[in-house]
Nucleic acid binder design. Sequence first.
RNA 1: GGCGCCAUCGUCUAGUGGCCUAGGACAUCUGGUUUUCAGCCAGAGAAUCAGGGGUUCGAAUCCCCUUGGCGUCACCA
Length: 463
Amino acid sequence: MHNVRTRIAPSPTGFPHIGTIYQVLFDFAYARKYQGKFILRIEDTDRTRFVEGAEEVIFRSLDWFGLTPDEGPLQGGPFGPYRQSERLSTYQKYALELVEKGHAYYCFCTKERLEEMRKEQEKNHQSPMYDRTCRKLTESEVKEKRAADLPYVIRMKVPDNQTVVLHDLIMGDIEFESNTIDDQVILKSDGFPTYHLGVVVDDHLMEISHVFRGREWVSSTPKHVLLYEFFGWEMPVHAHLPLILNSDGKGKLSKRHGHASVDYYREGGYLPEAVLNYLSNIVWNHPEGKEIYSFDEFVTLFDITQITSQGARFDLQKLTWMNQQYIQNMDDDILLQKISDFYPGRQIDDAIIRKLLPLLKTRMETLKDFDTLTGFFFAAPAISPRDQLEKEIILDLRSVLEDLGKWNEQEILVALKTVLEKHSARMPTLYYLFTGKEKGLPLPQSLEILGKEKILERLRLLS
RNA sequence: GGCGCCAUCGUCUAGUGGCCUAGGACAUCUGGUUUUCAGCCAGAGAAUCAGGGGUUCGAAUCCCCUUGGCGUCACCA
């Protein structure tokens, strides 16, 4: 096998989809596994859908997951440029080569005509396909139209009655009848290539060895197979990954769902390693049945031919559970770092948080929970007693805590219990009085950490 | 509709002809620990392996059909 080179080829048309990361996971892992390279190529060939700034968000997202490419627009490399809009002349050259070889042809049909044609076909219950009108044009007719400066596209000339087979690493061989394949446009009238020409040319030129992509691509892959044949190039190994479905099972995970976006996780306090773990686990199983495993472990153990063949529904609940597991088992120093990274610009007292960490770890599902759990440590909640009973409890609390000899967890607990018993109240009441919420971090430890002075002061303010 | 893919608990899956009266995880429910909430521990319910035919001594596992789901049919990727 020659050098492993994998790639992700997103188009900058919006926020990065979690499905893109799912693909990159395999690109990246495969490249690491075989000491290869992982390449990022920006497929910005659709000017109508181009979104300003989308490219930067892609870079940032990959970095956040630790899936930084070895080659790409940012890091450069020997196969650049890595942006398709900067490679236009290349595609034009190859499109022309195909025309010369008789594998492609000029098409002058207008959009209106094509639309009408499709309508007609649908009415007659035929599958919509280009009717090959321009394929019949003579050389001189083409010359004439070109001279008249008519807008044109270049289409691939799909052969008749041929079986096109796709060898897929995961799915095995899949056969297609060439008669069902459309004479796809490969070069648009604006001089930009379509996806089909773009990928094939670039994957070849960039010496991509393995293409991992979603299953939604298999039906257009025979076109790519043909293109490789036309050019006389060796086709990279293809592996089509099972789709990630909406949690209701209806269709591909769509942008309608907030959690389809990579930002949802970063902003929601999810850990990239947990997300990656989850993403790999929905289609791959650890040989020992483990569900929590590191990316490195995944890299050494996974076998691309052994991943699941079914589309998997996205289960945010399970991801959240995994995230909680990661937090719970995380080294204190690392967690501390993650927390302060998550709240940039905030002055956080490391000493206090370090003491809270053991209490926090089993209670934080995401880093975002840090705020709700520890809020009252940094500012007294704006509350007041809700009834006469609470007023009395506060008074008792003040005197009992004031008299406390030692300010530690055990003593505080005894004191709290005394007050509780006297009024036959329950813990949640105290939680409300101290934190503004009826549940949270263990109270005795929390009060100890916060300190006697602060606590008494707050009680004074309450009464 | 054409073409292609897929089909095991609610969800993700294990399972590659006998070890399966189908295992694990999430979720759900119950009990225990306990200062609230978590966590942890123990346990329960939950899949006639989509349905129907074969093949075989034997099928969740192999074959066929049906059904269902998904994908795709653009000068979008």
